[in-house]
Simulated scan of single mutants.
Amino acid sequence: MTVDDILAPEAVILGLRASAKTALLEDLARRAAQSLALDAATILGALVRREGLGSTGIGDGVALPHARLESVRKPFGLLARLREPFDFDAVDERPVDLVFLLLLPTAEGDDHLNALACVARKLRDPDIAAALRIARDAAGLHASISAPSFSHA
């Protein structure tokens, strides 16, 4: 599985304004609901429940809010670079400026775990994160996260 299987070019947001985790999750849930023709409140509820288990702020300014939903048939992603970083209760206590929303089907399967691992691996790559932070437009953001990764020796 690749990021291109999860993230459509039109599902990238540059300069998103958010001042708090709840407001950000509400905005992302609304956008995902429009893309998937689902109920925003259902998506938000699943995201909030997952955040209740522990922050999805994975460190280095990155958050990966995710949830499983019965109405989702295949992994779906939204990528946002925030206008201003803010506190997301990340594991390293650093403010977050890159957010990848990932919605997964409830059916268990390797593909779904692979989707989460694939996105996390990309976002944890310092070169990719740097490219995401300097991209000039949404197409540049999408290209930066979609580019093949090369492991560092």
Rank of each mutant, 00 (worst) to 15 (best):
V96Q: 06
T2G: 08
R31F: 06
A41E: 12
H142R: 06
G59R: 08
A139N: 15
M1K: 12
A40L: 09
D39R: 13
G15N: 08
A117S: 15
E10N: 09
S151R: 12
T2L: 09
A147Y: 01
I145Q: 02
Q34R: 10
I43E: 12
A90T: 03
E51Y: 01
V91S: 00
R17Y: 13
R83I: 02
R94M: 13
P9E: 04
L79C: 07
D5C: 09
R17L: 08
D89W: 02
A18D: 00
A11G: 11
D97G: 05
D89C: 01
L141C: 05
G61K: 05
I145V: 15
C118R: 15
S35V: 11
D87Y: 11
G57P: 02
I58L: 05
L7T: 09
R133A: 08
G54A: 01
S146C: 13
E84I: 04
R73C: 14
R30L: 14
L14P: 15
S146N: 11
L78F: 01
T106C: 14
A63P: 03
A115T: 01
V96I: 09
V119H: 00
A131M: 07
M1W: 06
T2A: 07
R81M: 00
D39F: 03
R31Q: 05
R133F: 13
E10L: 10
E10T: 12
I145C: 04
I58A: 00
S35Q: 12
G77P: 15
E108A: 14
L7R: 06
I134Q: 11
L98P: 03
A129L: 10
R124W: 05
P95N: 02
P85L: 06
D89E: 09
E70V: 07
D125Q: 03
A138V: 07
T42G: 14
S19L: 10
A32Q: 00
I128P: 02
L14A: 14
A32P: 10
L53Q: 08
R30M: 11
L38E: 09
L104I: 02
H142K: 08
A20G: 13
H142S: 01
K21N: 05
R73H: 13
D97I: 01
G45L: 01
I134V: 13
A147L: 05
A153G: 15
V72A: 00
V119L: 07
A32C: 09
S71K: 13
A129S: 14
